[in-house]
Simulated assay, not measured.
Amino acid sequence: MKKLASIVLTGVLSVGFLFAAPASSVTVTWNVLKTLDKTKKNTPAEALNGKEVTIPGFMVPFEDDAENVSEFLLVPFAGACIHVPPPPPNQMIYVKLPKGKTTKFPWTDPISVTGKLHISTVDSPYGDVSYNMDGEVVAPYEE
Rank of each mutant, 00 (worst) to 15 (best):
T27N: 09
T10E: 06
T121D: 14
A47H: 08
D128K: 07
S112L: 09
K38C: 05
L4R: 12
T10H: 10
I111T: 10
L33Q: 03
D64A: 05
V129S: 10
D37K: 09
L9K: 08
T39P: 08
S130Y: 10
G16H: 06
M1W: 00
I119L: 15
G100Y: 12
V28R: 12
K51V: 13
S120P: 10
S120E: 15
A45R: 04
S14G: 08
D123E: 15
G135T: 07
A5L: 13
A5D: 13
M92L: 08
V113L: 02
V60P: 01
L73M: 02
V53T: 11
A21Q: 09
D128W: 06
V12I: 14
N68V: 03
V84N: 13
I7Y: 05
A5N: 13
E67P: 01
P76R: 03
K34M: 04
L73T: 00
L13R: 04
V75S: 00
Y141L: 06
G115V: 12
Y126G: 01
G135S: 04
D128Y: 08
H83E: 13
M92V: 01
V12C: 05
I93Q: 03
L48D: 02
K99D: 08
E46R: 09
A20D: 15
A66F: 14
Y131G: 10
L117I: 09
P22A: 12
M133T: 11
T39F: 10
I119H: 11
V12D: 07
T27R: 07
S70D: 15
E63P: 00
I119Q: 11
E71L: 00
S6H: 06
V113C: 04
G11N: 05
A45I: 07
E71G: 00
L4G: 08
G79M: 08
P89T: 05
P44T: 09
Y94W: 14
L36R: 03
A78D: 07
K3T: 06
C81W: 02
V60C: 00
M59N: 00
L97T: 05
K51S: 13
T39D: 12
D109A: 13
L117T: 14
K51F: 11
K2N: 07
P85Q: 07
V28F: 13
Y131A: 09
T114I: 11
V28G: 12
F62G: 01
L48E: 03
W107Q: 08
